[in-house]
Structure formats: C-alpha cells, structure tokens
C-alpha cells in the first residue's frame, strides 16, 4: 500500500479497497472542510511537501490528489 493510500484510509476511516479507488468528495461521507485540512496536514507531514492554497482547493478526488502529489516528487 502506498503512503498516500494509508493517509486516505486513516483520514477518512475507509477500507483498503475504498482507499484504492478513485473516490471523489461526494463519494466519501465524512470528507468535509475539516477532514480536508486533516488530509492536507497528513500529506504535508508524511510526504514532507508544502502544498499551495490552489493545490489544496483542487484536491477534490483521490486521483487529483495523487496527480498533485506526484508533481511535488
């Protein structure tokens, strides 16, 4: 499992299978503005990157997050 999948799983309390899909905000019940910032903090801390505000605003699906994170690596 990638570190990003682990972050999705822990932040949203979802299963490994779900964390492996391309879920969007509307697909994850507890993905709200607060968990979104928890997610951002976890990504920045664990991957040692700094996301811009525009990138944070664009992170509306797992695929979008993976793409943006990849651009930092």
């Amino acid at each position: 499992m990638s570190l990003l999948q682990t972050i999705f799983e822990e932040t949203f309390k979802i299963s490994y299978e779900e964390a492996n899909q391309d879920l969007a905000m509307q697909d994850v019940a507890n993905w709200d503005s607060l968990t979104h910032m928890d997610l951002i903090s976890a990504i920045e801390d664990k991957l040692a990157i700094r996301l811009s505000s525009d990138e944070i605003a664009d992170m509306t699906s797992f695929d979008a997050i993976k793409r943006i994170v990849n651009e930092h690596q």
Partner: peptide, 19 residues
C-alpha cells in the same frame, strides 16, 4: 483562520453540494 481564502474554499467545497 482557515488556510484557504474564501474563493479557494468555495472552489473545493462546491464539491460537497453535488452529494
């Protein structure tokens, strides 16, 4: 203060409305 400004916040939070 939230890290996103109001325009950025609306951009991503509008995704919630599609639920």
């Amino acid at each position: 203060t939230y890290r996103l400004n109001s325009h950025q916040f609306i951009r991503f939070s509008s995704e919630f409305n599609s639920r």
